[in-house]
């Protein structure tokens, strides 16, 4: 099942999206750092904080919405949906395979971000110091933290059968996410809203966003555990939904 999904990723439109968004983040981060070099003296940490600021608040989550919508678009074209539903596969296998395929493109997006940041930091900004391992760890943690959103967006794209609608929902979630991580009143929401979990994961150890957690087990574990738990709950809901919807 997963192998079938991986074949569908060939020549897919997900790759340009997964390439463009992190490169955009690295570019804006680099320009920001260069323009404020007098105030930002923290080297790698300050530079990376600039890169992940907007990426963490918007690009990453929006990108997941776009990737999920693109992966599902092919299924809603023509009669491919019939093909999927007559394969005699369990609904859960179908959803998990799609989620996994989307997660692969999200992982690629993260790889582009990390590599882009390292290349720009080392060769464009010529930052001092050794290559910061934290960058790679945070990049990897973000992939796991992204799972709830990957599942939610995948389900929305499956059920709404539209490209724009689930992306719009994702964007609304981003706006709410920004509010939840920046305001004290909405802070509890940032622990369960998938977009906000992404923001908090990417900003681990960041100096640009106030209230960011630190890159220690105390900061990391709660994020990873909520992410995995939330993703599992969403998959269960999705399986129930597809059972009801597919025999409409």
């Amino acid at each position: 099942m997963l192998r079938a999904e991986l074949i569908k990723l060939r020549r897919s439109a997900v790759w340009p999206i997964a390439l463009a968004l992190p490169l955009l983040a690295v570019t804006t981060g680099t320009i920001n750092y260069a323009n404020n070099a007098d105030q930002l003296t923290g080297g790698w940490v300050a530079f990376n904080s600039q890169v992940v600021l907007f990426y963490g608040l918007l690009f990453f989550s929006l990108g997941i919405g776009l990737l999920a919508a693109t992966t599902w678009r092919a299924e809603h074209r023509g009669t491919n949906w019939n093909l999927l539903l007559t394969t005699s596969r369990r609904p859960a296998a179908l959803i998990l395979a799609k989620v996994a395929a989307t997660a692969v493109s999200v992982a690629f997006m993260q790889a582009v971000l990390v590599v882009g940041t390292l290349v720009s930091g080392a060769f464009v900004l010529r930052l001092d110091g050794g290559v910061p391992w934290q960058l790679v760890v945070v990049g990897a943690i973000a992939i796991i933290a992204a799972l709830p959103l990957v599942v939610v967006q995948s389900l929305l794209s499956m059920l709404l059968k539209s490209f724009a609608a689930p992306v719009a929902v994702c964007l609304a979630g981003c706006v709410l996410g920004v509010a939840s991580v920046t305001s004290v009143g909405l802070r509890p929401l940032s622990h369960v809203l998938p977009q906000a979990i992404n923001t908090r994961a990417l900003n681990l150890g960041s100096t640009a966003l106030a209230g960011s957690g630190s890159l220690t087990p105390d900061g990391v574990l709660p994020i990873l555990l909520t992410a995995l738990g939330l993703a599992a709950v969403c998959v269960a809901l999705g399986v129930a939904a597809i059972r009801r919807v597919k025999l409409r």
């Binding site: 009669t79 019939n82 394969t87």
Partner: peptide, 26 residues
């Protein structure tokens, strides 16, 4: 085996890749 209303198929893939998808699903 079935085909309803119009043939399925992923346009961005080759004929063989489309068949491989069916192969892996079944």
């Amino acid at each position: 085996g079935s085909m309803i209303e119009a043939p399925p198929g992923y346009g961005h893939l080759t004929g063989l890749e489309n068949m491989r998808i069916v192969q892996h699903m079944l």
